[in-house]
Amino acid sequence: MSAVRTGGRMFLSSAAFGIAVALGYWFVSHEAAGTALLGLMGVSLGAAGVYVARHARGAALPADQPESRPEQLAGQRVGAFPTSSSYPVMLAAGIALFSVGLIYGWWLALPGALLGVAAIIGLMRESRAIER
């Protein structure tokens, strides 16, 4: 069975578990906060599960075939993995400045936001270059 399908089932069964426990919990406790948390957990995992399950059909990976060999992938493109990028550290710095700026004032939050936006634009441009 394909791993993506396994993944879909993993999400969907976790979603079913969340909703079942939410119902049981409501029945024994009539407590709103926990029921909402469990229910929302179920719903959000369900959404992820449906997405993965819908994409599972076309995903036949050599990894899922027990007798496949590494050589089968020789020469094939298996993914794009950049080895370095200066934008992640820049984005993290932007997020940190922005977050602390929410405490101390816009003079810190604004440069943080600008730095973060610049980093995101940089990441997007870089992605395009990598995909090419």
Binding site: A3, V4, P62, D64, Q65, R69, L73
Partner: peptide, 9 residues
């Protein structure tokens, strides 16, 4: 899910 080597079920 997506990047296991061939045979790594």
């Amino acid at each position: 899910m997506l990047f296991r080597a061939p045979g790594m079920t």
